[in-house]
């Protein structure tokens, strides 16, 4: 029953959305076809809904004939169909709702965020600025890998001799995970040239890289540490029993295994580092968000910022999918054991 109502609501909303889409596009052929396809698609939940009702009638008939087991099976099949109907109808409602929102206020929303002329005007400068985000992210990632590993190893140094270094690493990680990245960026990018006048001629991107590295190596150190401590102590025992020293054990047995295990969480941190290059806009570094804001105030239209969002989406989604693939592959491998 709920499935049927939801399906009808979905169809109504989709029809409304399709009409708006057609109107906005000046009754263009493509928009009309897309709208028609969407409406037809939204009819689909009716199929399982009617199957569910048919199933229910079948169940009542079987019950009257005292056929308990077939009746139970018919009821189960009907329930399954009803759930399918609800699932597809809910999806139709959500898609239609999003479309309605996009064309709300007589196309005002679409115009604010998705104006093609604003994209055309800003695209060249934007893609050029986005290159800054990419190389800053790449250089930072390499540095983060190194500094993070050093911090992780410092935090795991054994004995009393290692205690002071352990403490330093611990304090560093705590502080830089506590300070918002944007604050570190402001302090480093604006503060360094004042404190060391010789650095005033450095490109600000360098200082941006330094501040991102400082922030993210604290996170990555934790990831490495989790990876190192997830290696079973028997591995260390086996290596030490062969006569390998602590450092040799770390380098040849523990770190190689730990790095393999932490690649997926590491890539997750890298994805968020890439996005945080946008924060460099607050430090007047000409990366894509700063440029898009300039265009935004120029054109009095938010479409350039949407374009910046699209750039990030284009480079991030493949990586996110790749991380998921790695996680699944590892899970499959572990399952095979």
């Amino acid at each position: 029953m709920v499935g049927l109502v939801l399906a009808l609501v979905g169809i109504a909303m989709m029809v409304a959305a399709a009409l708006r889409l057609r109107d906005y596009n000046g009754s263009g052929l493509v928009a009309t076809i897309v709208g028609a396809v969407l409406v037809v698609g939204s009819l689909y939940p009716l199929v399982p809904a009617f199957k569910a009702f048919a199933g229910d009638r079948k169940r009542s008939r079987l019950l009257r004939e005292d056929q308990l087991v077939p009746a139970r099976r018919a009821a189960a099949a009907a329930r399954e169909e009803a759930q399918i109907a609800m699932g597809y109808a809910a999806a139709a409602v959500i898609v239609a709702g999003l479309l309605l929102m996009a064309f709300a206020n007589g196309g005002g929303v679409a115009e604010t965020f998705f104006t093609k002329s604003a994209w055309d005007a800003s695209f060249n400068e934007m893609i050029h600025a986005f290159w800054t985000n990419i190389w800053v992210a790449c250089v930072s990632q390499v540095l983060v890998l190194i500094v993070g590993l050093l911090l992780a190893i410092m935090r795991m140094l054994p004995g009393r001799a290692g205690a002071p270094l352990r403490l330093i690493a611990l304090v560093y990680c705590d502080i830089f995970r506590a300070i918002p990245a944007i604050v570190t960026i402001l302090l480093i990018v604006f503060g360094t040239p004042l404190a060391f006048p010789t650095t005033a001629n450095w490109p600000p991107e360098w200082l941006g890289i330094v501040s991102l590295t400082m922030t993210y190596s604290a996170y990555v150190a934790e990831v490495y540490r989790a990876g190192l401590s997830s290696i079973h102590p028997s591995q260390s025992a086996a290596a030490r029993s062969l006569g390998l020293s602590y450092t040799q054990t770390l380098r040849t047995v523990l770190v190689p295994q730990a790095v393999r295990r932490v690649i997926p969480p590491l890539l997750n941190d890298f994805i968020s580092l890439q996005k945080d290059t946008a924060l460099l806009s607050t430090a007047s570094i000409a990366e894509v968000v700063l440029v898009s804001k300039l265009w935004e105030s120029n054109l009095f239209n938010l479409s350039p910022i949407t374009l910046a969002a699209a750039f990030f989406i284009v480079i991030t989604i493949p990586q996110a999918r790749f991380v998921d693939y790695l996680i699944e592959r590892d899970a499959a491998r572990r399952g095979a054991h």
Binding site: Q235, A237, A238, A239, P256, Q257, R260
Partner: peptide
């Protein structure tokens, strides 16, 4: 060792 403890990598 009982559980071999070979280096898996």
């Amino acid at each position: 060792f009982q559980s071999y403890n070979l280096f898996p990598h």
